[in-house]
Simulated assay, not measured.
Amino acid sequence: MSVDPMTYEAQFFGFTPQTCMLRIYIAFQDYLFEVMQAVEQVILKKLDGIPGCEISPVQIRKCTEKFLCFMKGRFDNLFGKMEELFLQLILRIPPHILLPEDKCQESHPCSEEEIQLLQQEIEQLQEKYKTELRTREALLAELEEQKIVQAKLRQTLTLFDELENVGRDRGTNDFREGLVFLVQNSRKLQNIRDNVERESKKLKIS
Rank of each mutant, 00 (worst) to 15 (best):
N185K: 05
L125K: 01
H96I: 07
G167A: 12
K103A: 15
I97T: 12
G167V: 11
L117H: 06
N185L: 08
Q120F: 08
Q146S: 02
R176Q: 15
V149L: 02
F70Q: 14
A151V: 00
Q116H: 12
E132F: 12
E162S: 07
K128I: 07
F86L: 09
K103L: 15
E132H: 04
E83R: 10
V58F: 01
V180N: 14
T131Y: 09
Q116I: 04
Q116M: 02
D194P: 02
T156F: 02
N77D: 14
E127H: 04
A151Y: 00
D161C: 02
S186A: 03
D174W: 05
H96F: 09
Q190D: 10
L133C: 07
C69T: 11
K72H: 15
L68K: 09
F67V: 13
E121C: 05
L159A: 07
D102G: 09
Q105G: 07
E162I: 00
L91E: 02
C53Q: 04
R187G: 00
L91Q: 07
R154C: 01
K130T: 12
F75M: 12
A138K: 08
V149A: 00
L99R: 14
Q126F: 01
F75Y: 04
G52K: 06
E164T: 06
E123P: 01
F70M: 15
R176N: 15
P94K: 03
G80N: 11
N165G: 07
D102M: 13
Q190Y: 02
